[in-house]
């Protein structure tokens, strides 16, 4: 175990020296990888920030449920209000709903008279024509899709006349975010392929430069694991260097973007903030880049060693 650790640290040190000894190609590779990784990373950060906007929007959105059709001449006003309260209690049972507020017909009429110039007109009517209302407060975490589903459920409920909800621009925003997210996914996949190809290529060059060493080690009894080890470190370290450069690029870009975007959001009186990279995302970027580097080295070397072994068998 101690020998194993000693050996790994030694290979790590040697591989770092190997990278440091050719600073030009090491830096160039890190920059190319960094640019490739930073693109999906920035897209992801922007989509993530947009999601936090929708979260905020839901706080203000309520669904108004009108109960009816009222046939006031057949139902006593007291009884009708009772009916509306029952519906309100049913609505409160729905998991997506956080609260329900009951507004009686009388209250609706009062509000209407106070807010509208048509108030006097209604005074002339014998009966109050306005239906009672339920104001439904959805859970704050709901996204637009859940909201429209909730609206459909409410509209289909017995005793409900109509449902009103301002959802258009919510849905639009949601669609834009979905597009951004698929864009991020596509970019990330392309990035992953690019990173694997780039690192695979540098590993191939490394194999060519060290083919004599590989052959000697193979000859004196080095296992495939032993032969692979420095190259796996090489690929992994290159992946990490690319990840670090990508984080620097993304942080700079987001820093430059933050002011104009927040200003723009302010114009829409919205709380849209592009936050710089948090620890979780940064960690994930480094881990993923390291993993891609390792994979690239593993496959490139696997192919090389298999070829070397097969040629001994005359294949």
């Amino acid at each position: 175990m101690k020998v194993w650790l000693q050996r790994h640290l030694q290979v790590l040190g040697e591989t770092l020296m190997w990278l440091v000894r050719s600073p030009g190609s090491t830096l160039t590779t890190a920059l190319i990888l960094g640019v490739a990784i930073s693109l999906p990373l920035m897209l992801f950060k922007v989509s993530q920030s947009m999601m936090s906007v929708t979260g905020k929007l839901n706080e203000d959105s309520v669904i108004t449920v009108y109960v009816g059709p009222g046939k006031p001449e057949q139902v006593e006003p007291m009884k009708e209000d009772q009916l509306v309260i029952e519906i309100g209690q049913k609505i409160l049972q729905i998991p997506l709903v956080s609260d329900v507020e009951y507004v009686s017909r009388a209250q609706v009429l009062k509000d209407f008279q106070m807010e509208s110039e048509l108030g006097d007109l209604i005074d002339d009517l014998e009966e109050n024509p306005l239906p009672a209302m339920l104001i439904v407060f959805p859970e704050k975490s709901l996204i637009a899709a859940d909201l429209s589903q909730l609206v459909t459920v409410l509209a289909d409920m017995e005793g409900v006349d109509s449902v009103s909800y301002d959802q258009q621009w919510q849905e639009r925003l949601q669609a834009i975010i979905a597009a951004f997210m698929s864009g991020t996914l596509i970019m990330a996949s392309l990035m992953a392929i690019g990173v694997v190809l780039i690192i695979s290529n540098t590993v191939r060059l490394g194999i060519l430069n060290r083919s004599q060493e590989i052959q000697i080690i193979d000859q004196i009894g080095g296992t495939a694991t032993f032969i692979r080890r420095p190259f796996l470190y090489f690929g992994t370290l290159q992946g990490i260097s690319g990840g670090i450069v990508a984080l620097l690029i993304a942080m700079l870009a987001l820093f430059l973007l933050a002011r104009p975007v927040n200003h723009l959001a302010g114009l829409y009186s919205s709380e849209f903030r592009i936050n710089l990279l948090d620890l979780e995302v940064s960690g994930a970027v480094i881990v993923v880049s390291a993993l891609l580097g390792w994979l690239a080295a593993r496959f490139t070397l696997g192919g090389y060693i298999a070829k070397m072994r097969a040629s001994a068998r005359g294949k």
Binding site: D218, Q219, G221, T223, A224
Partner: peptide
């Protein structure tokens, strides 16, 4: 695989060009 490596560890090889 690794059995080949183990086999080679029981053999010492000297080459004309030293390697």
């Amino acid at each position: 695989g690794d059995r080949i490596a183990l086999h080679r560890r029981t053999i010492g090889s000297v080459f004309q060009d030293h390697k």
